[in-house]
Nucleic acid binder design. Structure first.
Length: 161
DNA sequence: CGCATTTGACCTGCGC
DNA sequence: GCGCAGGTCAAATGCG
């Protein structure tokens, strides 16, 4: 990890999410939110500004909610490949200097790639919890390096911290 | 000792 | 059919 200049989750004492995080999470923007089975959501832009934003809430009501009734899409195909549940994709634009935003889940970095659309590298994270195949993509804003684009791929099927 | 992180290589999909 | 871009995996290393 580079830097460490800012007080992030490096403090074991405040790593408990008892109230909120250390870094500035005073405002965040939900860029898009669309479901794989609901193309109607494509293009939907939400701009939210919450001063009491808590990383812990992201896993409870943010990235975990929006589960359609027919989430269990399986049964007809189970012969060759298991079909995963509805793949939700949510993009967040968070104002943070650090890219390692602990949202209450264990993420394992599994790749880093430099995209052409941005001079900054893109990081790929995956939930290390067994049974949870949620993926996360973190990228810095091209014009606003102080902002971080966090894209969640999938829904957690297990309780967070 | 176990696990998270790192970098490069490899693979796939799409475009031309 | 080849090239480009993006995405994923894997082996090694370091740290807790």
């Amino acid at each position: 990890m580079s830097g460490g200049n800012f007080r992030s989750v490096e403090s074991p004492e405040t790593n408990d999410f008892s109230g909120n995080l250390n870094f500035e999470f005073s405002e965040y923007l939900m860029i898009r939110k669309w479901l794989d089975e609901d193309p109607s959501f494509v293009g939907s832009e939400f701009s939210v500004q919450n001063s009491g934003f808590r990383a812990n809430e992201v896993g409870e009501s943010g990235a975990r909610s929006s589960q359609p009734g027919g989430s269990t899409i399986r049964g007809e195909d189970g012969s060759s490949r298991e079909r995963q549940e509805a793949r939700e994709r949510v993009a967040f634009k968070t104002k943070s200097e650090v890219e390692i935003l602990d949202d209450g889940f264990r993420w394992r970095k599994y790749g880093k790639k430099k995209v052409k659309s941005s001079p900054n590298p893109r990081n790929y994270y995956k939930c290390s919890v067994g049974g949870c195949h949620v993926k996360k993509r973190v990228e810095r804003d091209r014009e606003d390096p102080r902002f971080v684009i966090t894209t969640y791929d999938g829904v957690h099927n297990h309780p967070g911290l």
